[in-house]
Design a protein around this nucleic acid. Structure first.
Length: 225
DNA sequence: ACTTGATCATTT
DNA sequence: AAATGATCAAGT
C-alpha cells in the first residue's frame, strides 16, 4: 500500500483507496506516513480524521470547503462499536447566527456539506488503544428523501429560533436528528448573534451536529446490521 | 449508561 | 477570529 499524498482524480480512485485500508489498524496506516500514533485523543481530538485525510489525499485543510472539492465529496470518520453503532455525534459545520436572510434548506451549508459524504467507520471504543483501532468499510452516501426531510425539519426549527433571537434558548435537546451545540476552543469565546429585540448580542459559537440516531440509521441501511 | 456542553490542535 | 478535524468528561 503506497503512502498516497496526491489528490484522487475521480471517485473510483478515492473509493479504491478507502476500500484498501479497510481492516487495517491506525498504527499500520500511520506508519505509511512516518507518523506516530498518540496514546489517546484527549489532546488531539481530530487526529484520526486528519490521518485519513492525509492518506486519502484530501487537500482542503481547514478551508471552509468540501474535503474533495473536485469530486464534491465530504470525508467523515465516525467512531463505532463492534455492533456498528456510532459512539459520537458528527460535527457538520459552524452555525451562522446572523445574516441568514434568504437562506433556505436548499441553499444552507448543512445541506451543502451533506450532499455527498464518504463515511469511514473506525472501531473506536475507548478501551481500544488508538493504534489498534481498525478501519471499517467505507460508505459513499447521499441523503435519501426521508433523511433529507428529517434534517430539513430540524434545521428549520433551529434556524427559526436563531432568526428570532432565541439562540440562547436552544439546547442540544432541540432537533431529533440535527442538533445545535457549542463549538469553540472554550466557553469564553464569543461571536455575534441576534437578541430577542433584533439587536446584536455576543454568544458562544455553535455548530450543527448529526445525532447518533441519524448516523446509526444510515449505517444500518447500507450495511444491513 | 448516555448525552450535553466543553474542549484541544491546527490552519487560514 | 473563525474555520477545519472531532472527542472528552461532567452531569443527569
Amino acid at each position: 500500500m503506497p503512502a498516497i499524498i496526491n489528490e484522487p482524480q475521480d471517485i473510483n480512485e478515492l473509493m479504491f483507496r478507502a476500500q484498501a485500508i479497510a481492516g487495517f489498524n491506525l498504527q499500520q496506516i500511520a506508519a505509511l506516513h512516518q507518523l506516530s500514533v498518540p496514546d489517546d485523543l484527549r489532546k488531539q481530538k481530530g487526529w484520526i480524521g486528519q490521518l485519513l485525510e492525509l492518506h486519502l489525499g484530501a487537500t482542503a485543510g481547514s478551508k471552509p470547503i468540501q474535503d474533495f472539492p473536485a469530486l464534491g465529496v465530504e470525508l467523515k470518520t465516525i467512531p463505532i462499536n463492534a455492533q456498528g453503532k456510532p459512539l459520537e455525534t458528527t460535527f457538520v459545520c459552524v452555525a451562522p447566527l446572523t445574516g441568514n436572510h434568504g437562506v433556505t434548506w436548499q441553499t444552507c451549508s448543512v445541506a451543502n456539506k451533506l450532499k455527498q459524504v464518504l463515511w469511514i467507520p473506525v472501531l473506536g471504543e475507548r478501551d481500544i488503544p488508538v493504534a489498534e483501532r481498525i478501519v471499517g468499510s467505507p460508505l459513499l452516501w447521499q441523503p435519501d428523501e426521508i433523511e433529507n426531510m428529517q434534517l430539513q425539519e430540524d434545521w428549520e426549527e433551529l434556524m427559526d429560533m436563531i432568526a428570532l433571537g432565541q439562540v440562547e434558548q436552544i439546547t442540544a435537546h432541540h432537533g431529533k436528528y440535527l442538533q445545535l451545540r457549542p463549538k469553540a476552543a472554550n466557553n469564553k469565546i464569543r461571536t455575534k448573534a441576534y437578541g430577542s429585540e433584533g439587536e446584536i448580542i455576543q454568544v458562544r459559537p455553535r455548530g450543527f451536529y448529526l445525532k447518533k440516531a441519524f448516523t446509526h440509521q444510515l449505517l444500518k441501511k447500507h450495511f444491513n446490521i
